[in-house]
Write a protein that binds this DNA or RNA. Structure first.
Length: 499
RNA sequence: GGCCCCUUCGCCAAGCGGUAAGGCAGCGGAUUGCAAAUCCGCCAUCCCCGGUUCGAAUCCGGGAGGGGCCUCCA
């Protein structure tokens, strides 16, 4: 199968291109993960959430996707950080990796198939370096091995700069071991006490970029369909990966280079070295993971995202409308929205016969959503459609009075079909798969019973037009975090206020 | 200094040559005992100046402002 309408922006060509994979029906996707020396901040979640969504959409279209995120667990940063925490480099890497994996799990990033570690692939890395030396692209220099950028005639094609530009005004560390200032390390000699592996060039460790080249070919093959990562990795990391891999294999390394925009705090990029990072595990104590995922997907992936708590609160308020609809849906159909089984592959949704105005509208929105996704994974536009879908569903429930006892069963079935579409599309974005923790219903029977009791008292008061008492009860319940909605036949209540 | 990118309603945001999605906030209405929730309606001509075009937020040139990379970074 192929997806005739999907177009993907490629950093290499700076254009949106029709999506065609190496093997029809299969997608090999590699995304650069973190160097594990500090707990993840929000910026680290952008790529995983985006590419998890990319995988979900491609899978929805019928592709079989293999998704790899690597872990760089050996690097100067780890070597510097471990002693500060009085632990080994290995312990540090494990601790931080665990934090990262847990954050991904929370954000419902479920599509990762492999998470290879650099230190588990030293032999593969060594082999590749030896090959690069043999082919004349790299050279050993007193324990180090460098890639010679002058031997790669298209070096700079990914970041769209020629090597001369890269050198001009550069602050590249001067090293008399390098033949050219732009040469980068494939292998670094170990200083005493540093973690080290044997190699033909002596004890040492891999350079920063080589592990991605070695691990991606091992797990996915010589040519990747998609290689993703943050925009800040475009140079030097991806440029160097590209140079190594193509020089070594002599084949195209990547068909589509996808770079996500960076998270900003105020005016500046969020980064570990700037110390302005928002640690994910901390943020998750105050916000539902779904709020974070929705926040990340609300902006197109290639644009920068400004972090602020006001913004998260706003996203949360937007989400509330969906949550309230899910409760309404349950009241009407006696079925939980979260239990709906929507098609996980692209369905062919038809309004059916007779085609009601409502279902025709649903089909229209369903198509619009997919058009947005086809346009370089435009999740922001797609979310806009989700809101329109929400309004359409509520409008239908209102106009057909679906909450009254006299509701037409055919109308209820139509609502269920509409909700099923919302479910189908939500799955593509990886949202609404379970109720957010903060909205979980009260499991304590005593509390529910007491609230029910007080509501009966209050409704009695209302019948007797004792509104002062009724309003007092509502006010006091509100202060306890219980908000009320008086409806025709009954009063419903929920935790979490009216936000 | 060099190379990229961005600038759309109070805030967030889609838009990729055909006459400005959506959300939040706000205002008005329906509904309600009053609220809440929901629905309906109102709410921008797209940083500035030129140009191309029958037609531009969308293309080209110049200017202003912001950001990224050139050094570890998702």
């Amino acid at each position: 199968m192929e997806a005739p309408d999907l177009r993907v922006y490629n950093t290499l060509t700076k254009e949106k291109e029709p999506f065609r994979t190496v093997d029809p029906g299969k997608v090999r996707m590699y995304v650069c993960g973190p160097t594990v020396y500090k707990p993840s901040h929000l910026g680290h979640m952008v790529g995983p959430v985006i590419f998890d969504t990319v995988k979900r959409y491609l899978t929805y279209l019928g592709y079989q996707v293999t998704f790899v995120i690597n872990i760089t667990d050996i690097d100067d940063k780890l070597i510097a950080e471990a002693p500060r925490q009085k632990i080994t480099v290995t312990e540090l890497a494990e601790r931080v990796t665990k934090d990262y994996v847990e954050n991904l799990r929370m954000l419902n990033v479920t599509g990762v198939d492999h998470m290879p570690r650099a230190t588990h692939h030293i032999p593969e890395i060594r082999t590749m370096i030896e090959g690069l030396i043999a082919k004349g692209f790299a050279y050993a220099a007193s324990g180090d091995v460098y890639f010679d950028v002058t031997k790669d005639d298209d070096y700079g094609k990914l970041c769209h700069r020629d090597p001369a530009q890269l050198e001009a005004g550069s602050r590249i560390e001067v090293s008399d071991k390098k033949r050219n200032p732009g040469d980068f390390a494939l292998w670094k000699a170990a200083k005493p006490g540093e973690p080290a592996w044997d190699s033909p060039w002596g004890q040492g460790r891999p350079g920063w970029h080589i592990e991605c080249s070695a691990m991606s070919v091992k797990l996915l093959g010589q040519t990747l369909d998609i290689h993703g990562g943050g925009l800040d990795l475009q140079f030097p990391h991806h440029e160097n990966e590209l140079a190594q891999s193509e020089s070594y294999h002599g084949t195209t390394f990547v068909r589509y280079w996808m770079h996500n925009g960076l998270m900003k705090t105020g005016a500046e990029k969020m980064s570990k070295s700037k110390g302005n990072e928002i640690v994910v595990s901390e943020l998750l104590k105050r916000y539902d993971p779904e709020t974070l995922r929705f926040f990340l997907l609300a902006t197109h992936y290639r644009r920068p995202i400004d972090y602020s708590e006001d913004r998260l609160d706003e996203v949360r308020r937007g989400l509330e409308g969906f949550y309230r609809f899910f409760e309404r849906f349950e009241r009407i159909t006696k079925a939980r929205f979260y239990d709906l089984q929507a098609p996980s592959a692209r369905s062919s949704f038809e309004p059916g016969q007779p085609a009601t105005e409502f279902l025709v509208e649903i089909v229209r929105l369903w198509e619009q959503f997919l058009e947005h996704m086809d346009d370089d994974f435009n999740t922001g536009g797609a979310i806009g459609v989700l809101y329109e879908l929400l309004t359409a569903l509520n409008r239908f429930a209102d106009s057909r009075q679906l909450e009254s006892a006299a509701a037409d069963p055919a109308d209820i079935r139509a609502l269920q079909r509409g909700a099923l579409v919302l479910k189908e599309l939500s799955q593509i974005l990886g949202i609404f798969h379970q109720p957010p923790a903060t909205r979980e219903t009260v499991s304590n029977e005593l509390v529910s019973g007491l609230v029910q009791l007080i509501l009966e008292v209050r409704n009695d008061a209302r019948k007797n037009r004792n509104f002062a008492l009724a309003d007092l009860i509502r006010k006091r319940l509100g202060e306890l975090g219980v908000s009320l909605e008086d409806r025709k036949e009954d009063t419903i209540w929920r935790l979490g206020g009216t936000c």
